[in-house]
Simulated scan of single mutants.
Amino acid sequence: MKTKIALITGGYTGEAEVSFKSSAFVYSQLDHNKYDIYQITITKDAWFYVSDSGIKHAINKEDFTLVLDDSIVQFELAFIMVHGSPGEDGRLQSYFDLVGIPYTSCDALTSALTMNKGYTKAILADLNDLFLAKSVLLFENQRAQAVELVEDKLSLPYFVKPNAGGSSIGMTKVKVADELKVAIDKAFDAENTGSQVIVEEFVNGREFSEGIYRNVDGELVVLPATEVKTTREFFDFEAKYIPGLTEEITPTDLDVNQQLRIGKILKDIYVRLNCKGMVRIDFFLENDTDKFYFIEINTIPGQTPQSFIPQQVRAAGLTEQEFYGNLIEVALKK
């Protein structure tokens, strides 16, 4: 009998559009001979499944079941493909913990923590060989004196971004002091990104993104790295989602020593943050020092055909079906 999988998509933020694309790709790659897969859409207004005939069926939120053709569908696993809230900030994970359904992502605590860039950096501060850009964490009640707080501790240029949220929404690179206040206000006012802003000193180096996951044998597997080269000022929302603005090189030309170093660092990050499933970690390699600087971690990374993780899976000699199947089997073991 097939395992019943709820493939969760949608969400409460502007990242829902990307979630729909990610879930559609995952659905196309999963083994339908082995898994019975239902795409479940989550919005602020409703949680539902759309049948082949186009009829919308509501999810019973009391136990996450679905009434279909006079029978009750009980799911054995949730494959979470919701970028942003509530899929990436721990809310869905808490719900599934309450109703007793395993899921493919990090747990609620790790998901909530890693959505907060400043808190994540604090947890990672003493890891061997990992460096962190100097930063200032700003709260809403510090907004009036934010410029002074930043200029007192950091040197230009800066990256200003919401302390929660993804897809580089609300993010600005600040090169002159006069631009700082506007950038801070933009980050504070970005929708669905919390009421905190993080400002970091600029790191001059190459930018990379690399996936890591645990396989069915319990081993941590680091995927080949992707180097990101963009014609934009930085890897912002447009660079991420408008074709032609960014060159992505997978696998990239890190030398053997660099690959070994970053592989160990990524495993240490995964363990320190108690990650589960697949995560993607972004980092800089500083030009003059050869030091690896942490940027951020993404616990529900994009899964369109062009996304980093699928690129890296193919570069590793795996198929997406094998990779996603591994995530499912590991989660079911919980």
Results as ranks from 00 to 15, higher is better:
residue 56 K to E: 04
residue 117 K to G: 00
residue 221 V to R: 05
residue 218 G to M: 01
residue 229 K to N: 15
residue 74 Q to M: 11
residue 216 V to E: 13
residue 107 D to F: 04
residue 219 E to W: 08
residue 250 T to V: 01
residue 318 L to R: 10
residue 131 F to I: 15
residue 28 S to Y: 12
residue 113 L to A: 01
residue 201 E to S: 15
residue 233 E to D: 12
residue 33 N to M: 10
residue 33 N to E: 12
residue 151 E to T: 14
residue 110 T to M: 01
residue 211 G to P: 00
residue 158 Y to M: 06
residue 243 P to E: 00
residue 280 R to M: 02
residue 97 D to M: 05
residue 249 I to T: 09
residue 300 I to D: 01
residue 298 N to F: 05
residue 43 T to H: 07
residue 123 I to S: 04
residue 230 T to K: 04
residue 150 V to P: 01
residue 169 I to N: 13
residue 223 L to P: 05
residue 84 G to V: 06
residue 65 T to F: 05
residue 108 A to K: 09
residue 192 N to F: 13
residue 134 K to V: 05
residue 200 E to N: 02
residue 293 Y to E: 04
residue 45 D to F: 09
residue 251 P to E: 00
residue 282 D to A: 03
residue 96 F to V: 09
residue 183 A to D: 05
residue 207 E to P: 08
residue 143 R to H: 14
residue 274 N to Q: 14
residue 89 D to V: 02
residue 147 V to A: 06
residue 244 G to I: 00
residue 272 R to P: 08
residue 156 L to M: 14
residue 173 K to I: 10
residue 130 L to T: 01
residue 1 M to C: 11
residue 81 M to W: 04
residue 248 E to L: 15
residue 65 T to M: 10
residue 39 Q to E: 12
residue 205 G to N: 10
residue 226 T to C: 12
residue 90 G to D: 01
residue 175 K to Q: 10
residue 318 L to K: 12
residue 70 D to S: 13
residue 306 Q to E: 14
residue 116 N to D: 14
residue 72 I to E: 14
residue 197 V to H: 08
residue 37 I to G: 07
residue 1 M to V: 15
residue 20 F to S: 02
residue 312 Q to F: 02
residue 251 P to F: 00
residue 55 I to P: 07
residue 124 L to I: 08
residue 334 K to W: 11
residue 280 R to P: 07
residue 102 P to C: 05
residue 191 E to L: 12
residue 115 M to Q: 12
residue 242 I to C: 04
residue 139 F to E: 13
residue 168 S to M: 00
residue 275 C to G: 04
residue 92 L to D: 13
residue 110 T to W: 03
residue 5 I to P: 03
residue 312 Q to C: 14
residue 77 L to V: 00
residue 107 D to T: 05
residue 218 G to T: 02
residue 261 R to F: 12
residue 243 P to R: 01
residue 243 P to C: 02
residue 206 R to N: 11
residue 311 Q to S: 10
residue 160 V to S: 07
residue 298 N to S: 09
residue 194 G to H: 07
residue 171 M to W: 05
residue 234 F to E: 07
residue 56 K to P: 03
residue 263 G to I: 03
residue 241 Y to H: 14
residue 243 P to G: 00
residue 305 P to W: 13
residue 311 Q to G: 12
residue 5 I to R: 01
residue 276 K to W: 06
residue 234 F to T: 05
residue 58 A to P: 13
residue 132 L to S: 09
residue 163 N to V: 00
residue 185 D to K: 14
residue 259 Q to G: 13
residue 42 I to E: 04
residue 36 D to F: 03
residue 307 S to A: 06
residue 169 I to T: 13
residue 36 D to I: 02
residue 256 V to M: 14
residue 321 Q to Y: 12
residue 19 S to E: 05
residue 86 P to V: 03
residue 124 L to K: 04
residue 126 D to K: 14
residue 299 T to M: 03
residue 200 E to H: 06
residue 317 G to V: 07
residue 61 K to P: 09
residue 166 G to T: 10
residue 140 E to K: 14
residue 195 S to H: 10
residue 216 V to G: 10
residue 55 I to T: 15
residue 291 K to Q: 10
residue 249 I to C: 01
residue 210 E to R: 11
residue 37 I to P: 07
residue 49 Y to W: 03
